[in-house]
Design a protein around this nucleic acid. Structure first.
Lengths: 199, 199
DNA sequence: CCTACCGATCGGTAGG
DNA sequence: CCTACCGATCGGTAGG
């Protein structure tokens, strides 16, 4: 007879991951420590680590949850707009707005993780690289639809468009976090709309 | 009568900073640990820290040295070109090439440090923010000269141009480090030249 | 989920 | 520059 129901266990696990997502956006995925989470949630370290087995598996769970949060908050609302250029225009506004609102308190989770892990080996790095690749592919697919529909010129190509939008969003996030510079969002938006060929 | 001459002391200090710049580009400025440096250079920890007094002052010295290395390798050659648009065109090629050659073995030092510290308090963060601000101002001044000379249109303004060039360079560096994607340099170069209004 | 513990490593210091 | 050491914290485990 278990002391805690499966629902209570799931709730406890979710609370750990939620705190870890916030912490990871501030201090990086390596800065999510088991001891800090235990103090924060008034648990023992073994209580925290027991849900995951190891720090690495905790980090992978945190990454998954952060991406799901971003998809729900940014991608899904934009995806209600018609595919192609119109969806991309809605997306870049929602995207920049998520950085301005600090959807993650330490700024864009995937930006932080991808720079933190871009030169390290291991399963976490592989998962971060895969997540970033999926996001760029999502952008690229939408850009390709816009090109196919004649809404964008064929050059720069869809991969170029995805690369540029991602670069500008990452840089705006960094400028805001580092300098508190909110004008960076306007600069990024102007440049993104130029990439999306607004006349 | 000192056991070591001032020149020997300076040489020892320089060797520490040099190893720390490489390490910092790979593992971040927080990942530069005194114990690792001591092992790497076959010194005691107290021998390492004695040159700086604290880890924070070591980090500040490492940041200064990394920036000087970038200025010498990228900015100074570009600065031999005529001011304005021509200099910017030479600069972006040298800049992307420094990322491709891995001037820093773990990729662009300032990109890593500015994302790592963009949400932390302290003297290192302030120094990183100041360094990034100086670099953006350097780019902006050059763009303003190009605008004043009629080599670039007045909109997007010089600050926009600086922001976009920096965003594209950071993103190309990240794509290369994370995915080994060398085409990112070509995408960044195309976008930069579009920003610099090449017809 | 807990307490109690492990070895490793962190930044840093005392004393020479 | 060294040895020898400090308290704190790291990830993780044993046993319950």
């Amino acid at each position: 007879m278990p002391r805690r129901s499966p629902a209570q266990v799931a709730e406890s696990r979710a609370a750990i991951v939620c705190a870890a997502v916030d912490q990871g956006s501030r201090w990086g995925l390596e800065g999510v420590t088991i001891g800090w989470l235990a103090d924060e949630l008034r648990m023992s370290k073994s209580g925290v680590v027991g849900h995951f087995g190891s720090k690495e598996r905790l980090q992978l769970a945190v990454l998954d949850t952060a991406i799901a949060k971003f998809v729900r908050d940014v991608w899904e609302p934009a995806a209600t707009h018609p595919a192609g250029r119109e969806r991309l225009l809605a997306l870049v506004d929602a995207w920049l707005d998520s950085h301005r609102r600090e959807l993650f308190p330490g700024g864009c989770f995937l930006t932080t993780a991808s720079v933190e892990f871009d030169n390290r080996p291991g399963a976490v790095r592989d998962a971060v690289a895969a997540a970033m690749a999926r996001w760029l592919t999502t952008l690229e697919r939408e850009a390709q639809r816009a090109i196919d529909a004649g809404e964008l010129p064929p050059h720069p190509d869809a991969t170029d468009v995805a690369f540029e939008l991602n670069a500008l969003a990452m840089a705006a996030n960094n400028a805001f976090q580092l300098h508190g510079d909110t004008t960076a969002f306007d600069r990024a938006r102007r440049a993104m709309r130029r990439t999306l060929n607004e006349r």
